[in-house]
Computed example of a mutant assay.
Amino acid sequence: MTGRRSQSGPTAFRWGFVAPRFWPTWLAIGLLHLFAFTGHRPRRAFAGLLARLYRRFNPRRVGIVRTNLALCFPEEPADVREEWVRRHLELHFLALVDLGRIRRARRGELTRQTDVANQPVLDRLRREPGLILTVHSVGLEWAAAMLAETVEGSTIYKPFADNPVIDWWFAGMRTRHGTQALPRERGMGPHLKALRGGRSFFYIADEDLGGGHGVFAPFFGVEKATLPLAGKLARAARCPVYPVIGQLDETTGRYRLRFLDPVELPASADREAATAINRVIEELVRDDPVQLMWSLKYFKTTPPGESERYRR
């Protein structure tokens, strides 16, 4: 018997999770918990090994990283972008290794281990809940867990295909401090209700969900399918929009939350609103481009008449 994905929340634990087909998953989870008790240097060394293996055995996904960087930063020399590819993959796997630290951390522990840029904005967020606009960065899970220690809120999650054990494990990490994690199929209604009720909404705004769910707007000068929803939600809930990105320092192993000042976004669902959202995301990313999760297909949906951007 395997776990069932609930329409009201993440997968619950079931005894079927101990079946032999899930043993490799449990082994990986065990390693993550083991690394939670080690220092930064062994975690970074292991992450570096994983990154090198990934580059060797997953050229298609590495090609997506290269394509995204070439589209967004054509002015940068090829050798600079290639160095960004290397750094990004090392940061990505270091953040994965750090998931065990997040899962076992006691309340307040992540806050003490996090540097905050623009602390007054975080202080305001704790007093005045709102829409926390963020992106798929390497520090995303850490940022969400750290904020959950002191900021009540909700978020959207996407189930992992065909592996309910991973669903269950991530659910425990994301909801252990009271965050309400709901599947995308539930829509925005529960999150709008939470915003109106004085809770925050941790909203990841950079994903390409297809042309049928958004409008095209420039992102680093490239037309990107964007969901222009953040301003509409904020207007409906009469709450601020707090842009933030979670970053990771590969040298020290410390995480950093970089807040921008709260912004006002158009409440329309058109190109103007989508462009405003993308400009905020660009400002978050330009500080240190390698922090964004460049392995995602941000430009998979193309305008009519334009060729596919990711070569198979």
Results as ranks from 00 to 15, higher is better:
14 R>Q: 14
14 R>K: 12
28 A>W: 10
32 L>N: 07
41 R>W: 12
46 F>K: 00
47 A>V: 03
47 A>K: 03
50 L>H: 07
50 L>D: 10
55 R>I: 06
55 R>Q: 15
55 R>K: 15
57 F>M: 10
63 G>P: 06
69 L>K: 12
73 F>L: 10
76 E>I: 01
85 V>M: 03
98 D>A: 09
101 R>T: 14
102 I>W: 03
103 R>K: 07
107 R>G: 01
107 R>K: 11
114 T>M: 08
114 T>C: 14
115 D>H: 13
119 Q>E: 15
123 D>G: 02
126 R>V: 13
127 R>K: 15
130 G>Y: 00
130 G>T: 01
134 T>S: 10
136 H>V: 03
137 S>R: 05
138 V>S: 12
140 L>T: 00
153 G>C: 05
157 Y>C: 08
163 N>K: 07
163 N>W: 07
168 W>P: 02
169 W>P: 05
178 G>L: 01
181 A>H: 04
186 R>L: 12
191 H>E: 11
195 L>A: 09
198 G>Q: 10
203 Y>K: 04
204 I>L: 15
204 I>Y: 12
206 D>C: 06
207 E>K: 09
209 L>F: 15
226 T>Y: 10
227 L>G: 09
231 G>W: 06
233 L>G: 09
233 L>E: 08
247 Q>A: 15
253 G>K: 00
256 R>P: 03
257 L>E: 08
257 L>G: 10
266 P>R: 03
266 P>C: 11
269 A>I: 00
270 D>W: 00
273 A>Y: 02
274 A>N: 07
276 A>H: 01
277 I>K: 04
279 R>W: 03
281 I>P: 00
281 I>M: 11
283 E>Y: 01
288 D>W: 12
289 P>W: 04
289 P>Q: 06
291 Q>S: 14
294 W>I: 08
295 S>V: 14
296 L>D: 12
297 K>Q: 15
303 P>W: 07
304 P>E: 09
306 E>Y: 03
312 R>V: 08
